[in-house]
């Protein structure tokens, strides 16, 4: 392999891994301590890692003329970069930096694992030689990345909801979290006398009363949980990211079908990969439906998001590694 290429590749790759590893640690520290300084250091590190990765993939393509997403390394690399990119967009838009620790950690692990599949520069096998690969693969990977971010939000949701059930149980009054997740009616009644007394909404909304009570009584864990966004807010975030992922996954399946139709004459071949993607699609379609029901919205839908991401991991890695097929990258 050309040593200059090798060097550039390695420098960018190592920069990305180092930035993610430290970024994940720092953002985890932010998650644990809520010290804004950690966020100020962690966020640029995450952005640096993401940029280094995208530049690395771009230079690979530019220098070799070979589309870099034809093997598991390229694909996992894009997955981690897009995961971080989607997280950063959400964090900037909705002040969601608290989720950064898990997201950047998953990205770092995905990238580090991806490097074990880095064979160097290989032209694609005939089945993958098509312009469709440039359309289909990035779309599917961005869907996976969205679901990964949603999964991290769901974990935090479940953690906070679990804390609430524990504190409520301790208080001797276990209340269904599903009900709390929907939230008590928000009274925005505005008049000069009541407006000031109206609790702030959004991130500061209290929908974990037992935790709040324990926090007020000085429980350190409860105080820490209190500092997380409200369950309602976490649920809305999780929904919003999945609402990006599901249409992307649908588009990914559709472009895959168009590619298959053009290349192989049949738009659907029950290939293990496309079929596994269909399983994920069904799970997230189920999520969307149950999320319309107040009695399901909350802990149950958060678990479905976790299940959905498990099917994504199976579809992405499980099928590639254990089950061969048109998509296994190793024909």
């Amino acid at each position: 392999m050309d040593p200059t290429r090798e060097l550039i590749d390695q420098v960018l790759l190592k920069t990305a891994i180092a930035a993610y590893a430290t970024g994940a640690l720092v953002l985890f520290a932010y998650f644990l301590t809520r010290n804004g300084l950690y966020r100020k250091i962690g966020a640029p590190l995450a952005i640096l890692g993401c940029a280094a990765q995208l530049v690395e993939l771009g230079t690979r393509w530019w220098m070799t003329g070979i589309w870099p997403l034809t093997n598991l390394y390229g694909s996992l690399s894009l997955f981690s970069a897009l995961g971080v990119a989607i997280f950063v967009i959400f964090a900037l838009r909705y002040d969601l930096w608290l989720v950064g620790g898990p997201v950047v950690a998953v990205s770092a692990i995905a990238l580090a694992y991806g490097t074990t599949w880095n064979e160097g520069y290989m032209p694609a096998v005939p089945a993958l030689q098509s312009y469709w690969i440039k359309i289909h693969v990035p779309i599917v990977i961005s869907a996976y990345a969205s679901f990964m971010v949603a999964f991290c939000v769901s974990l935090i949701y479940l953690m906070k909801a679990y804390g609430e059930t524990r504190f409520a149980a301790r208080r001797g009054a276990v209340r269904g979290i599903a009900a709390t997740a929907g939230g008590p009616p928000v009274d925005l009644t505005l008049s000069a006398s009541t407006y000031a007394a109206t609790p702030a909404l959004g991130s500061a909304r209290i929908d974990t009363p037992a935790t709040s009570q324990a926090a007020a009584a000085g429980d350190a864990l409860a105080q820490w949980l209190e500092g997380l966004p409200s369950l309602a807010r976490l649920d809305v975030m999780q929904y919003r990211v999945i609402a990006i992922g599901l249409p992307l996954l649908s588009l990914g399946i559709i472009t895959g079908a168009m590619w298959a139709k053009e290349a192989w004459g049949a738009y659907w071949q029950w290939d293990p990969k496309e079929t596994a993607a269909l399983v994920s699609w069904i799970v997230y379609a189920g999520y969307m439906h149950l999320h319309t029901r107040p009695e399901w919205r909350g802990v149950k839908t958060a678990w479905i998001s976790v299940l959905g991401f498990a099917t994504i991991v199976f579809c992405y890695l499980g099928v590639n590694i254990w089950i061969s097929g048109l998509h296994s990258y190793k024909m």
């Binding site: 928000v186 925005l188 959004g202 807010r233 999320h291």
Partner: peptide
């Protein structure tokens, strides 16, 4: 889609 998803927006409107 329920109320939570519109809470911030409603507050802005009010």
């Amino acid at each position: 889609k329920g109320y939570d998803v519109f809470e911030d927006r409603f507050r802005e409107i009010v």
